[in-house]
Simulated assay, not measured.
Amino acid sequence: MDYKEMLFQMNMKRKMKDCFRAANLYFTSKLGDKTIYIYPKVHSVIKKDEENCTEITFTLMNGLDPTEVKKKMFAFQQVFGRSIELKGEIKKFVLYIYHNPLKSN
Rank of each mutant, 00 (worst) to 15 (best):
M1V: 09
M1H: 09
Y3K: 15
K4F: 15
K4L: 14
Q9G: 00
Q9H: 05
K13V: 03
R14S: 07
R14C: 01
M16R: 03
M16P: 01
D18N: 06
C19P: 00
R21N: 03
A22D: 12
A22R: 13
N24R: 12
L25E: 00
L25V: 12
F27W: 03
T28G: 01
K34H: 08
Y39W: 06
P40H: 05
H43W: 07
S44L: 04
I46M: 09
I46F: 09
I46A: 09
K47I: 06
K48M: 10
E50P: 00
E51W: 11
N52T: 02
N52E: 07
C53A: 07
C53G: 04
T54M: 06
E55K: 14
T57K: 15
T57W: 07
T57F: 10
F58L: 07
T59F: 12
N62D: 06
N62R: 10
L64A: 12
L64H: 11
D65L: 13
P66K: 08
E68Y: 13
V69A: 11
K71T: 01
M73H: 07
F74G: 02
A75F: 02
F76T: 04
Q77K: 15
Q78K: 11
G81C: 10
G81R: 13
I84R: 09
L86G: 03
L86F: 07
K87C: 08
K87T: 06
K87I: 01
E89I: 09
E89T: 11
I90Q: 11
F93L: 04
V94W: 01
Y96H: 07
Y96P: 02
I97P: 05
H99N: 12
H99V: 01
H99C: 04
H99E: 13
N100M: 12
N100S: 14
P101T: 14
